[in-house]
């Protein structure tokens, strides 16, 4: 099956048409809107059709999501700032190179993110105490993109992340929790961003990750679970970060992702013949880009940040000492 590139662009475009707003689902998913825009933007950037989304409108919207009280990005205007939506907001602005719109907000963001770190090094998603290794990744990815990463944050954070590793080499949400491929992505991503990959046995985790590929070619998130297109990203990018991407079968994964396309209306679903959404469309495309971006005339994706490499190569990452 071929990649129906035009259809996917149409699909992303259709998410913005007048009909969408008349569906109850649009209103029920406000809490994921900024993330959704990041997913849609990543998809069209990779497909080299950035004009599918109106840059000025998108930036205007990101700024409307600013939570003045907390100093971070909410997923939707009037909602509350959270670690998840804050990273999406920063990623969108970084993709557009729109740093000038942040102004003094940049220091608020740094304060917001650093303020969510707990004494044991972990991060909470907002002021209410939910802890998850996803937020450790959100924090260091956000700070790295802003060029504000510092050791006083990453060292205790590292200690916590390493405590979340299990006997199978994988990582869970918190210490003691079962290994899960999406959490593995956040933890390996954390280690890659903070230059700490040498702390783990990459052969062991690589082995566990490669076992996620099932006969259909798709990847699952845990032993004995069904495959799902979004794991094409969580697993494949994790393997790429530790230099073991060749431990799974690219041809079969490619075929699996392509088989999940809606060739009529565009979009990619979690499994063949399921309903498509922007989340799986994004991660299906990022997977294809990571395996072979040239074949599909896509931009090359950075496995660490899940953004085009031409964007991420400009990141300063560590805060330059001002002395």
């Amino acid at each position: 099956m071929a990649l129906v590139k035009e259809k996917h662009i149409q699909f992303i475009k259709s998410l913005n048409d007048d009909v969408t707003e008349q569906m109850i689902e649009y209103w029920l998913s406000e809490h994921l809107r900024l993330n959704g825009i990041y997913w849609g933007l990543t998809a069209v950037l990779l497909l080299q059709e950035p004009s599918t989304l109106d840059q000025q409108e998108v930036i205007k919207f990101v700024l409307k999501c600013w939570d003045l009280k907390q100093g971070g990005f909410a997923p939707f205007p009037r909602h509350d700032a959270h670690m998840l939506s804050t990273l999406s907001g920063i990623q969108i602005l970084a993709n557009y190179g729109a740093w000038d719109v942040l102004n003094e907000k940049k220091q608020d963001l740094v304060k917001f993110i650093k303020g969510l770190q707990l004494p044991n090094g972990s991060f909470q998603g907002d002021r209410f105490g939910e802890v998850d290794t996803r937020f450790s990744y959100n924090a260091v990815s956000s700070l790295a993109i802003l060029g504000e990463l510092t050791k006083d944050v990453t060292e205790p954070a590292l200690e916590f992340v390493l405590r979340c590793q299990n006997f199978d080499g994988g990582f869970g949400m918190v210490p003691g929790a079962e290994s899960h491929a999406a959490q593995v992505f956040t933890c390996i991503g954390f280690l890659a961003i903070t230059d700490n990959l040498h702390h783990i046995d990459v052969d062991k985790i690589g082995s566990w990750l490669s076992d996620r590929q099932v006969e259909s070619g798709g990847l699952n998130g845990r032993p004995e679970k069904l495959p799902d297109v979004c794991y094409s990203w969580w697993v494949l990018s994790s393997l790429a970060m530790i230099g073991k991407a060749h431990w799974i079968d690219f041809d079969k994964l490619e075929q699996y992702i392509l088989s999940c396309q809606d060739t009529e209306n565009g979009g990619i679903s979690d499994r063949p013949d399921n309903e498509c959404d922007v989340f799986h469309t994004c991660f299906g495309l990022t997977g294809l880009s990571l395996m072979n971006n040239e074949k599909y005339s896509m931009l090359s994706i950075d496995p660490i940040y899940c953004m085009p490499k031409e964007v991420t190569k400009k990141f300063d990452k560590w805060k330059q000492s001002t002395t």
Partner: peptide, 14 residues
Amino acid sequence: MVRALKITIITCLS
């Protein structure tokens, strides 16, 4: 007017 902010996630995550 604010067309670019409509991106919806009909079937996501959960």
